[in-house]
Nucleic acid binder design. Structure first.
Lengths: 120, 120
DNA sequence: CGGCATCCCACGAGATACTG
DNA sequence: CAGTATCTCGTGGGATGCCG
């Protein structure tokens, strides 16, 4: 049992999910992997996420200390998003998850092809 | 770009999320870590998940070949859930995620305590 | 016991318009 | 450009009841 910011979690997995389980969060983090990105660049990278959602998720990631928000006081405005040190510690894990998905797809595709050959 | 079961994913991370990004999925997998569990045992392990949701997520995990469902034809019914070999390959990754959450909580808590001491 | 089926509501999320 | 604010709608998911 973990207590964290007035929330109780039965195991640290739940805490992890609360932090990066949001619908687009890990995808956002993943896109900030090596490059700092401007808001508009993130939008282009994630076209399926609406602006409202993107802003919302970014704010949460910022509040949780995973993403850093750098505001340039100028006109027109410019805001850059990057990973904090804490955020960067997630990258190797996300890379593994990404790789896992790749392997999964490869295996299933292979199996389906084999099944096809069998029935032919 | 990955195509998988009529769905298109821009990167394998999206595919991974489609498979285990569901609200409770990784938690379910995590609870099936070493033990096979009956439906009612899973319910007790995850009290915050309603029966409907649990069933739904389990079906999806089953269809994706991550969880195995074993039905004992008897009265009263008995159904056991366990991880498939594919599902088991997720365990090390989930363990890392879990550990990450733990570290995160520890660090934040530590930082907040230090900040307290400073102001005192 | 381990589910579906149904009903129903809250809230997540889209669309649009406006601002520093 | 990078947001907020508001309004609205669809649906995710809760509650309940029934069945093999």
């Amino acid at each position: 049992m973990i207590k964290f910011r007035n929330e109780e979690y039965q195991c640290s997995m739940e805490l992890t999910l609360a932090l990066i389980g949001g619908k687009w969060k890990s995808l956002i983090i993943w896109h900030l992997e090596e490059k700092t990105l401007r808001f508009s660049e993130l939008r282009r990278a994630l076209p399926q996420v609406t602006q409202k959602m993107l802003t919302q998720q970014l704010r949460e990631l910022e509040n949780d200390g995973i993403v850093h928000r750098l505001i340039y006081r100028q006109v027109p405005p410019k805001v850059e998003y990057s990973l904090t040190d804490t955020g960067k510690t997630l990258l190797p894990i996300l890379a593994t998850l990404c790789q896992w998905g790749q392997n999964y797809a490869d295996e299933i595709t292979l199996n389906e092809k084999q099944a096809e050959t069998k029935t032919m």
